[in-house]
Deep mutational scan, measured.
Amino acid sequence: MSIQHFRVALIPFFAAFCLPVFAHPETLVKVKDAEDQLGARVGYIELDLNSGKILESFRPEERFPMMSTFKVLLCGAVLSRVDAGQEQLGRRIHYSQNDLVEYSPVTEKHLTDGMTVRELCSAAITMSDNTAANLLLTTIGGPKELTAFLHNMGDHVTRLDRWEPELNEAIPNDERDTTMPAAMATTLRKLLTGELLTLASRQQLIDWMEADKVAGPLLRSALPAGWFIADKSGAGERGSRGIIAALGPDGKPSRIVVIYTTGSQATMDERNRQIAEIGASLIKHW
């Protein structure tokens, strides 16, 4: 067993022997301040990774656009098919120029040779490549099948209805392509620590998230040296922004954090800054 596999296998073990965790309302004060600064709703939840206990939450059962955070769930569904012998990570998928959609920095470079399922998941999570996500959605049967996968996990809230990039439209009061912070946090925890996926697939999923290259201005910008984070960000229309993450000190994750916002007129930089400040408060009061 590799060191990384050992780390993920012992996530519940280490967490069980940690000192009790206590909620700190100071972080919620910052979440509410972010709402004021952005002029928009902000949803927040913080779960203990081992027990699933909610440590703090704000608007945990209000719907927010998922945006690209759905790509972690998508690759979880792909990995479940791999575990069941219905898919192979090494299978190569070929596609054409007509398949390319807006923001496809990886797939646009491989029109000639195609990409493997493993490479597509890596591109979808680490670079948020939209064509990679659409190609992977095709392998599982489309958005409705991802929703069905989530329902089978016990998540009857999260739903995907459309493809990239239309799913980022974020129309107010439109339930399409949305989740709730509580539902997303619980589902992410199941994917990373539950028995739904094999140990190898859980490790692969967290490795992809740990290698995320496009979430630097968010929670990662607030992390002290030595902290662990595996995350996936999302951005959408109407001032929408979000991030889902597993993080913790001492090089291992111990909490799940989900943050979503929508309806702001603020710039992307300002949305990023507010999420980073929430992260800084979380870490300060850990």
Rank of each mutant, 00 (worst) to 15 (best):
P25Q: 14
L28G: 12
V29H: 10
K32G: 13
A34S: 12
A34K: 03
E35P: 01
E35R: 04
D36N: 15
Q37W: 08
G39N: 08
E46F: 14
N50W: 12
G52R: 05
G52T: 06
L55S: 11
E56P: 01
S57D: 07
F58W: 14
F64Q: 03
S68L: 00
T69Y: 02
A77P: 02
V82T: 11
D83S: 07
A84R: 12
G85P: 01
Q86R: 12
Q86G: 11
Q86S: 12
Q88S: 14
R92S: 08
I93V: 07
H94V: 07
H94R: 09
Y95P: 04
N98F: 07
D99C: 05
P105G: 05
P105V: 11
V106L: 15
T107V: 10
L111E: 08
G114M: 04
A123H: 04
A123I: 04
A124L: 04
I125T: 09
I125V: 07
I125Q: 03
T126W: 04
M127H: 08
D129Q: 01
D129R: 01
A132F: 01
L136C: 04
T138H: 15
T139Q: 15
T147F: 03
M153C: 08
D155R: 01
V157W: 12
R159C: 13
L160P: 05
L160C: 06
R162F: 03
W163V: 08
E166K: 13
L167S: 04
N168R: 04
N168V: 12
N168D: 12
I171Y: 15
I171W: 15
A182G: 12
M184W: 01
T187S: 10
L188A: 06
R189D: 06
K190Y: 15
T193G: 13
T193I: 11
L196Y: 10
L196Q: 07
T198M: 10
L199V: 10
Q204T: 08
L205W: 04
L205S: 00
D207S: 11
W208S: 03
E210V: 12
A211I: 12
A211L: 10
A211G: 14
G216L: 10
L218D: 03
A222E: 10
P224L: 05
G226D: 11
A230I: 11
G236C: 04
S240I: 02
S240H: 06
G242T: 01
I243L: 11
I244H: 01
I244T: 15
A246G: 13
L247H: 00
P249D: 11
G251S: 13
P253W: 09
P253G: 07
S254M: 11
R255H: 11
I256A: 13
I256H: 00
V258C: 06
I259T: 05
T262H: 07
G263M: 10
S264L: 05
A266Q: 09
A266E: 13
M268V: 11
D269P: 13
R271N: 10
S281F: 06
L282Q: 13
L282I: 07
L282M: 13
K284L: 12
H285M: 07
W286S: 00
